[in-house]
């Protein structure tokens, strides 16, 4: 019963590729945003966190439309990417990865921010008095202590990217083998006669991936908390 056809494998493979790239792409800016939001007070901070968390509450189709206007072939960002790097994201899998990264960013930043906030800054001060400069304190104290949250954030972002539908189909459409990721393939199968079988198979697969991601990230969060509790 659980034999996947080549077309279904293609959708699964594409979703994996999009999920991995979007997670890798959003890790550096995601961590930077999480660190800034966790550690600094500045004017317009709530505006910044509002922008980061916006894709969480906005209808995905609106996020997709904004991406289309910005990163489409005639959009300012899309033109810049093409002129400077020769990269086109509109209607390409790279665009699907971009849309997925934007949609996964709030989940990633939230998990990372919580774990950075849980790192006691007094430990960093202790490390400075022991002769460590700011960067060494960051890499030997702050980063390892927040690592469970970083991993949890990456897992959540990957799971979100793996199954992102609304922004992706709005931004890069539904092109088999290029932008037809797993949820879009499910949607397409449901549009065709006899498509219910493949749709259900892919749906089960995505349930498994999502549940595994949630369990994995919660396990990481618990580890972070217990580690910090035993340190008093």
């Amino acid at each position: 019963m659980f034999e996947l056809s080549p077309a279904e494998w293609e959708a699964v493979g594409l979703s994996l590729k999009v999920g991995l790239w979007s997670t890798l792409l959003s890790l550096p800016p995601g961590f930077f945003l999480a660190y800034v939001l966790a550690r600094f007070q500045f004017p317009l901070k709530s505006l910044l966190s509002g922008v980061v968390y916006m894709p969480l509450v906005l209808p995905p189709v609106v996020t997709g439309l904004m991406l289309l206007m910005l990163f489409g072939t005639r959009g300012p960002a899309g033109r810049f990417l093409y002129d400077v790097f020769g990269i086109t994201v509109a209607f390409r899998w790279t665009g699907a990865a971009l849309a997925a990264a934007i949609m996964g960013l709030p989940l990633m930043v939230r998990a990372m921010r919580l774990s950075i906030e849980a790192v006691d800054t007094r430990l960093e001060i202790a490390s400075r008095t022991l002769g460590a400069g700011w960067w060494r304190a960051f890499f030997t104290i702050t980063l390892p202590l927040s690592m469970p949250g970083i991993i949890a954030g990456a897992i959540l972002s990957f799971a979100k990217s793996f199954g992102e539908f609304g922004a992706t189909i709005t931004f890069v459409s539904n092109i088999p083998g290029e932008t037809q990721t797993l949820p879009i393939a499910i949607y397409s199968f449901l549009q065709s006669p006899d498509g219910e079988g493949p749709a259900v198979r892919l749906a089960i697969l995505s349930v498994i991936v999502s549940v595994a991601a949630i369990i994995g990230s919660e396990w990481m969060e618990r580890r972070a908390i217990s580690r910090i509790r035993t340190s008093t």
Binding site: D120, R122, L123, A126, T129, G133, P144, L145, S231
Partner: peptide
């Protein structure tokens, strides 16, 4: 001078050992 350049040892009320 930055703390790391002062060569001043500091023992805090809470030991502040690095938990990891």
């Amino acid at each position: 001078l930055k703390p790391e350049h002062r060569k001043v040892g500091y023992i805090f009320q809470d030991a502040r050992l690095f938990p990891h």
